[in-house]
Design a protein around this nucleic acid. Structure first.
Length: 133
DNA sequence: AGCCTTTGACCAGCG
DNA sequence: TCGCTGGTCAAAGGC
């Protein structure tokens, strides 16, 4: 059976704290190609990702890119959403957990004050929950 | 030559 | 049952 994916959704938060521009794009069909994704600055999270799709999600009026972890045995995925009108405002949604460690985590292992660093990372990951959308 | 991104098509879930 | 929407696939082109 195609296992019902028990996806754990972890919202990482905005990369920008500026609120979304909610102005309606009046019939200006914002096809995904209309936005040059090269403008996007993908924040590094210590993992290597392979992009496998991009769509404009009409429901939320945003573009969404789909990524898989490049690690062969890792099933982690992530999605990056942004407004066509403000491609610098990203929202990243992680799906699933990595079965390996990120570069950042490996880096932390090398340093003795890893606890403090982990605290920072935790704040980065969980401290910016978007409670308004 | 190989890897990565792009993008249209296809598929599944849901109302 | 059908149409819509979101998620994934895979071919093609670029780097």
């Amino acid at each position: 059976m195609p296992a019902q994916k028990e996806s754990k959704w972890i919202r990482v938060g905005y990369c920008s704290l500026i609120s979304w521009d909610e102005r309606e794009e009046q019939h200006e069909h914002p096809s995904a190609a209309a936005v040059n994704s090269a403008q996007l600055e993908m924040p590094q999270d210590g993992h290597d990702w392979k992009k496998y799709g991009q769509k404009y999600i009409h429901n939320i009026k945003k573009n969404r890119s789909y990524f898989k972890c490049k690690n062969k045995s890792c099933k982690a995925k992530k999605r990056v959403e942004w407004h066509p009108s403000s491609p610098s405002h990203l929202r990243i949604v992680y799906d699933g957990a990595h079965n390996h460690r990120s570069k950042y985590e490996l880096d932390q292992d090398l340093s003795s004050d890893s606890i403090a660093n982990q605290y920072d990372l935790t704040n980065q990951v969980f401290g910016q929950f978007d409670s308004t959308s």
